[in-house]
């Protein structure tokens, strides 16, 4: 039976081929959920979802697109919003 910690579902079970020519079961933490657009709830492009430690060491430009509302709104919603602002304002 695995150690108490690994008996919960917060760990993913991964089968790994090890040098001893056998298949071993490894446990890995689950990744946070994918980023979604605040407006249309579609998945955001250019926004990775990694474990906090890995995200922390990533450069800022790797974590979100370099566009106004990058990482918050998808490109279509950004364009729509800016169009409204240009027309309304």
């Amino acid at each position: 039976m695995p150690r108490g910690m690994y008996r919960s579902r917060t760990f993913r079970r991964i089968f790994v081929k090890v040098p001893g020519n056998t298949v071993k079961l490894h446990y890995r933490r689950r990744k946070p959920s994918k980023a979604k657009c605040a407006n249309c709830k579609k998945l955001l492009i250019g926004v990775p979802h990694e474990l906090p430690l890995k995200m922390k060491n990533m450069p800022k430009t790797a974590k979100r697109p370099e566009r106004p509302y990058g990482g918050m709104l998808c490109s279509a919603c950004t364009r729509q919003l800016l169009k409204q602002k240009a027309r309304g304002g």
């Binding site: 106004p68 950004t78 364009r79 800016l82 169009k83």
Partner: peptide
Amino acid sequence: VKLAGRDA
């Protein structure tokens, strides 16, 4: 007004 890209 530019809508897309870095300087949107």
